[in-house]
Design a protein around this nucleic acid. Structure first.
Length: 565
DNA sequence: CTGGGGTCCT
DNA sequence: AGGACCC
């Protein structure tokens, strides 16, 4: 077969639907507060209106606008706080379940953005006129797509994608209908033969509508997007790089020779963007599995006291352990995130993270079935002291804590797999107990904050003799476990103090010293020899079920069947 | 005081 | 551990 004919036949083999929930947070809040349904509504996080309903958008309110600005545009704007994502997470899971009724091939970006590869269900419809597994029947006689179509559709592509896309538009309509019937949430959809086109075309008609694009209109769609920054994957940095090279539009991108572009932005990105500029995108829909991390963050004006850090981390950890229990898997590592106030310039304020293994005995699987919050907090504080030099004044604008590696809850028996998996998870994580073994010397004298500063705030009178002798403080967490676990008060002394304090934080602070966090026995070293000593087929069995850290390199063979360019 | 989440790559 | 990206 001539390679050109071959190209023509196999060109657009996939069918992709992109489902975007309309102003997701705002819809959820309207469901929770029906009286707000008919009013302009914004969802607020800190000083930001992160999203708003369409009534509010008529006033010109945009995503991530400041509250001030939004209220100027619409003084009667109703605002609800959306800093707690619990309800959104809940609805997001329900939406995902509905999508899974259609196909397991669902890739999620965030809570409200989904790609579905419906190639195979479209094929089922073409074979039989219905899908016995779904309760949907599609009128195959009707050749018209549901919803809008972008661009001309005069000539049918010889690969047959035309009718596939039309069927997919009916499936998309059915998906949206089921989401609305079950949840009273509206979505918009884009239908195309790849992810890029499905996503971009769905933006054209937005609340509660859907749009289809045929391949012949792909280049046209890309031409109509004004800036390269609208291409998914082109963020702020790349946009700056491109603009400094006078590349602003997709057409600029097309005019730039690949070789020249590679030198400016790197070979991988250059190739991707040259493809994208023509509407080409071979990336596959990667089904989203379990989360790779579960985290919580809290931003604030400024936190400069260790005591307040401890209080806030404690609150975050309580919620985080609840989320982990819902998830069902056992976390194996903890990561702390800190954002330090950046007052040298108006720089963005980078985050710093520290990560460590989570010792097994802090986990709920061991006897009690619950987390030991005191020790979790001690561990988090240890990470904090690795991140922030508390001998000097500090002020933070964000604290976050996350679980980052997981072990499936064993369901009992698969001992060897479970054992090895745990080892591999722990192995790559820094073992913080093994270095600076006794550590916590800083913890002994936290009042040294401000010791040479003149800002006269809280602590300057202090330097209260903290001296619990470091030596006696230095029992390990393991020792604590062996001793008895002190019943955790509803409020810790720290929280009581914090909630009661007004202006004169005095030497009460001496009592707020973090309980001696100390080296923990962590992470037995992995024994690669154990694995290697197994029969090869057992090795394979074991490694196949490991949490995926390596990814299949995306050398899609289809690439070689794409019309040259 | 640009939010509170996430992903993957280097 | 950080960076860039997504929503």
């Amino acid at each position: 077969m001539d390679s050109i004919e071959f190209d023509a036949i196999i060109r657009h083999p996939r069918t992709i639907i992109h489902i975007d929930v309309d102003c997701f947070y705002a819809q959820v809040e309207m469901l929770r507060h029906p009286e707000l349904q008919s009013k302009p509504l914004g969802v607020q996080q800190k000083n930001i209106v992160v999203t708003s309903n369409y009534l509010a958008r008529e006033y010109g309110i945009k995503k991530c606008m400041s509250v001030e600005e939004a209220l100027q545009l619409c003084p009667e704007l109703a605002l609800v706080n959306g800093e707690d994502l619990t309800h959104y997470r809940h609805y997001s899971a329900k939406i995902l379940k509905i999508l899974h009724r259609f196909t397991p091939l669902v890739e999620r970006l965030g809570f409200d953005d989904n790609f579905l590869d419906v190639t195979s269900i479209v094929q089922k419809y073409m074979n039989s006129g219905n899908d016995s597994e779904l309760n949907i029947s599609i009128n195959m006689e009707d050749e018209h797509p549901v919803g809008k179509v972008f661009g001309p559709s005069e000539e049918e592509c010889p690969c047959g994608c035309h009718s596939r896309l039309i069927i997919a538009s009916k499936i998309a309509a059915e998906i949206r209908e089921q989401i609305y019937k079950d949840l009273h949430i509206t979505c918009s959809a884009g239908i195309g033969h790849n992810k890029l086109l499905a996503k971009l075309v769905g933006l054209l008609h937005k609340p509660n509508q859907q749009t289809l694009i045929f391949p012949c209109s792909a280049a046209m769609l890309l031409s109509t997007i004004e800036s390269v920054s609208k291409i998914p994957g082109v963020g702020q940095k790349t946009t700056q790089l491109l603009m400094s090279n006078n590349i602003k539009t997709v057409d600029d991108l097309r005019k730039t020779p690949l070789e020249a572009l590679e030198k400016k932005i790197g070979i991988d990105l250059a190739r991707k963007l040259k493809d994208n500029a023509e509407g080409i995108d071979e990336t596959v829909v990667k089904p989203t599995g379990k989360r790779q991390s579960i985290g919580l963050e809290d931003g604030f004006k400024s936190v400069s006291l260790i005591a307040e850090v401890e209080s806030r981390l404690g609150a975050l950890l309580r919620r985080l352990t609840e989320l982990a229990m819902e998830d069902g898997r056992i976390p194996v590592a903890m990561r702390l995130t800190v954002r330090k106030h950046d007052f040298n310039k108006s720089a963005s304020g980078k985050r710093e993270t520290r990560q460590c293994a989570l010792p097994k005995h802090l986990l709920p699987s061991s006897k009690s079935g619950i987390y030991d919050h005191a020790k979790m907090l001690a561990l988090a504080m240890k990470l904090f002291h690795r991140t922030v030099d508390v001998s000097k004044p500090f002020h933070l604008t964000l604290l976050g804590v996350a679980f980052t590696k997981f072990e499936e809850r064993s369901s009992g028996k698969n001992s060897i797999t479970s054992f090895l998996r745990k080892q591999v998870a722990v192995q790559s994580v820094l073992d913080i107990s093994s270095e600076e073994g006794v550590s916590d010397i800083n913890l002994g004298s936290p009042m040294s904050v401000n010791q040479d500063s003149n800002d006269g705030s809280a602590m300057s009178t202090t330097s209260s003799p903290i001296s619990k002798p470091i030596g006696t403080n230095n029992q390990t967490v393991d020792d604590d476990v062996l001793n008895e676990i002190e019943p955790l008060p509803k409020k810790t002394r720290l929280e009581v103090w914090l909630s009661g304090r007004r202006e004169s934080p005095s030497n009460e602070m001496a009592d707020l010293r973090l309980s001696p966090s100390s080296p923990m026995q962590l992470s037995p070293k992995i024994d690669a020899a154990v694995l290697k000593s197994l029969p090869i087929d057992i090795q394979r069995e074991v490694t196949r079920s490991w949490p995926t850290t390596s990814k299949p390199k995306s050398n899609n063979i289809l690439k070689y069947f794409i019309a040259n360019k």
